[in-house]
Amino acid sequence: MSRVLAAALERLLPDLRGFARSITTNSSDSEDVVQDAVERALRSHAAPEGDEALRRWMFRVIRNLAIDELRKLRVRREYSAAQVRLHHDGPPCTDVARDVLVRMVFDALPPATREVLFLVDVAGLRYAEAAEVMDVPEGTVMSRLSRARKAMRDRIEERPDGQVRKTTR
């Protein structure tokens, strides 16, 4: 085990945990995926050098592990998705309430939608880097991101009665 690799992985842990949480159904699954990914990286002789290259590589490993886990759960028929819906009646949201609303809406999105939003909007990857992590063309990232952002806006703007609030943005 390289001390340099271990130190780099330690620096990347917050990003890795955040990404894993964005594409898994709960924090326990995300911690398991991150642990498995770090373990594989430490055993690998092919881990890239440099924090940015390692970061993208680890995102890819985490993505693949998460997909594998999802497939296992589907095969076993143990997977059950829970939709969280926030009904908002009352005065405009405070900043804290808006942050909670955004997080709840984000968590209610499908994993593939959360993945692209996390990689570009939260982790700050460029389209090309996100495309590499997701193993899709750059244009696919851009179109998925556009649809994901629209889905977020639509869900945030929904009212309990099904009507959509008009916005000036």
Results as ranks from 00 to 15, higher is better:
1 M>N: 10
2 S>P: 10
4 V>Q: 11
9 L>S: 08
13 L>N: 11
14 P>T: 10
17 R>D: 02
18 G>T: 08
18 G>I: 09
22 S>D: 14
23 I>C: 15
24 T>H: 03
25 T>H: 09
28 S>P: 00
31 E>P: 00
36 D>E: 13
38 V>F: 06
40 R>C: 01
41 A>Y: 04
42 L>F: 04
42 L>Q: 09
43 R>V: 05
44 S>W: 03
52 E>L: 14
54 L>S: 06
55 R>Q: 04
58 M>H: 00
63 R>A: 11
65 L>Y: 07
66 A>G: 15
67 I>A: 12
71 R>C: 03
77 R>P: 07
79 Y>N: 02
80 S>R: 15
88 H>R: 15
88 H>P: 00
91 P>M: 07
92 P>T: 08
94 T>M: 01
94 T>Q: 03
97 A>V: 03
97 A>G: 01
98 R>D: 05
101 L>K: 08
101 L>D: 03
102 V>Q: 12
110 P>F: 00
112 A>I: 01
115 E>R: 07
118 F>L: 00
120 V>I: 09
124 G>P: 09
124 G>S: 09
127 Y>A: 14
127 Y>N: 15
131 A>G: 09
135 D>H: 12
135 D>S: 14
136 V>Y: 04
136 V>G: 01
136 V>P: 03
139 G>A: 12
140 T>P: 01
140 T>M: 04
140 T>I: 01
141 V>G: 11
141 V>T: 10
142 M>F: 05
145 L>Y: 06
148 A>F: 08
151 A>M: 12
154 D>M: 14
157 E>W: 03
158 E>D: 13
159 R>W: 05
163 Q>V: 14
164 V>M: 14
164 V>A: 10
164 V>H: 15
167 T>W: 04
